[in-house]
């Protein structure tokens, strides 16, 4: 930026507007409730249960996403096959369809697959499924890009050095995408925590935090909903700052 003061000033002004669009509403929410009210809310069993349910379900959804999404990302990055573009589009679909529609699709899908043997209603598995569905592309897409950026020659070299395909994957490819994998997982987890539309179509109870906020808003108004929202935002901020610090501290950027 040296010698480009006008560019720097213009970009900085535009960036301030962007940060303001995101930051101002959050700041207003955070300071719209007294700290004592936030503390009281945090001690409510219903709030604690919903927070624990939300974070746990988002974590399970992320784990499942990692187990199934990593091979999918590798296949999409490395191989050419018929209907690949279709598959790619399918992976991206949850980003564009309205989430209540995703909820309806999952509801219909589960009843046609499992029939009367198993129901999403009242079940935490519904929450995990909804979270997994809407956040899956956020994990797969960056990971696919990361696999794609590894030169094939690196994997080929490993093979000619006597290393089999599995070992090559875990000793060469996997370490090189570690950063993208962690970032993708973090994004997936975060997206899961914030999900409302798809979850509420599948099951209202047990209540994840987003549903609890909605529930309190419709029954007790803004005054009831706001403290829970503030608690969720604070916990999310603390988690994200902690994880980003951890990520930097461990130097997971090796190879990038």
């Amino acid at each position: 930026m040296h010698g480009a003061p006008f560019l720097k000033a213009t970009f900085a002004s535009l960036a301030v507007v962007a940060v303001g669009i995101i930051g101002l509403p959050i700041l207003i929410i955070l300071f719209s409730t007294s700290p004592s009210k936030v503390y009281e809310t945090l001690l409510e069993t219903e709030v604690l249960n919903s927070l624990s349910l939300t974070f746990t379900c988002a974590f399970i959804a992320t784990l499942i996403g990692m187990i199934f999404g990593t091979p999918l990302a590798y296949i999409l990055a490395r191989y050419q096959f018929p209907l690949k573009s279709f598959l790619q589009g399918l992976v991206d679909l949850p980003l564009v369809i309205p989430h209540p529609v995703a909820g309806i699709a999952l509801l219909l899908g589960s009843s046609s697959i499992f029939g009367g043997h198993w129901s999403f209603i009242g079940n935490w598995s519904a929450i995990v499924t909804a979270m997994l569905f809407v956040s899956f592309p956020l994990f797969v897409n960056p990971l696919q890009e990361a696999f794609h950026s590894i030169p094939r020659e690196m994997e080929w070299t490993s093979r000619t050095l006597g290393i089999g395909p599995w070992s090559t994957f875990f000793r060469v490819s996997f370490p090189l995408v570690r950063r993208s994998l962690l970032v993708g997982a973090l994004m997936m987890w975060a997206r899961g925590i914030s999900e409302f539309g798809a979850i509420v179509m599948l099951t209202y109870n047990p209540k994840v935090t987003s549903v609890l906020i909605y529930d309190r808003f419709t029954t007790g108004g803004l005054e009831e909903a706001l403290p829970v929202a503030v608690v969720l935002i604070w916990i999310s901020i603390i988690f994200f700052v902690f994880l980003r610090t951890l990520q930097k501290g461990r130097g997971v950027s090796a190879g990038n």
Partner: peptide
Amino acid sequence: SIIFQNPSLFPH
């Protein structure tokens, strides 16, 4: 064994 124009050393 094989050596490519891009030496493909493992950066990690």
